[in-house]
């Protein structure tokens, strides 16, 4: 595959140690190049990743500790990209959880080479991204908001939400409606009516 022209810093740095790793074959949508780095993958100025296959870890449990030690406390975010390729992974994962706490690494699990490659690509491409995507809702259209609002109480679905506002005209009327009035809407059974009226009137704060 022809790679786009390289400019320094925009490609994933790969340690020559990783030669032969099937993950490299799956790295398709980001450029990568071999480079002499401490970690296995360099994903930015402050981010790096170590690759660990659990199969290998079981045979050589000390390997990963050496590698972590060799990082010498460099990098702010140190990913331990762990490939789950054995069925009885429990023991190893338990141990790694403890390790992550002690040695300041963040464990990311993946289940295939393709997924591992995707993680690497994502880390590299989000190097300078902002966090808006996980900071909460972006505004959407009224209809979507409405459906989202009305479907919070259990058992009320999309069609019910539409029926609700189409009967009452506006949300405010729907909220102020008596249970009797709501139950007339087609599709609104007893349980839905009860849930809706309860939630709408329920105090935000739990009374002590």
């Amino acid at each position: 595959q022809a790679l786009p022209s390289r400019s320094s810093g925009s490609s994933i740095l790969v340690s020559p140690r990783q030669k032969g790793n099937p993950v490299l074959a799956s790295l398709k949508s980001m450029p990568w190049e071999y480079s002499d780095i401490l970690a296995d993958y360099g994903l930015g100025l402050t981010t790096c990743a170590l690759f660990l296959s659990l199969k290998y870890h079981r045979l050589h449990p000390e390997y990963i500790y050496t590698r972590i030690r060799n990082l010498q406390g460099k990098y702010n975010l140190r990913i331990l990209l762990t490939m789950v390729d054995i069925p009885n992974h429990e023991d190893s994962l338990r141990e790694l959880s403890k390790t992550s706490l002690v040695n300041n690494v963040t464990i990311i699990l993946c289940w295939s080479a393709a997924e591992a490659a995707r993680y690497l690509e994502l880390y590299k491409s989000y190097e300078h991204a902002n966090f808006a995507a996980i900071r909460g809702q972006q505004s959407t259209s009224y209809a979507e908001k409405l459906v989202e609002f009305a479907t919070v109480p259990r058992s009320i679905n999309k069609a019910d939400a539409v029926a609700l506002v189409s009967t009452f005209g506006s949300l405010r009327h729907a909220i102020n409606a008596d249970p009797e009035q709501v139950s007339v809407i087609s599709g609104w059974g007893e349980r839905k009516v009860k849930n809706w009226c309860k939630v709408v009137d329920e105090p935000f704060r739990v009374k002590k």
């Binding site: 949508s29 980001m30 402050t46 981010t47 702010n76 975010l77 990913i79 994962l93 959880s97 992550s100 706490l101 300041n104 963040t106 464990i107 990311i108 699990l109 997924e115 995707r118 993680y119 690509e121 994502l122 880390y123 491409s125 989000y126 190097e127 300078h128 991204a129 902002n130 966090f131 808006a132 995507a133 996980i134 972006q138």
Partner: peptide, 30 residues
């Protein structure tokens, strides 16, 4: 699917990536 412009991507993996980038010291237990 991985470009930075598409940071609102919907799959779980990309959000986990963003979270760890935002909080490098946050440890994840699987």
């Amino acid at each position: 699917s991985v470009s930075a412009a598409n940071a609102g991507a919907n799959d779980l993996q990309s959000k986990i990536v963003l979270l760890t980038l935002a909080f490098p010291k946050l440890r994840i237990i699987w």
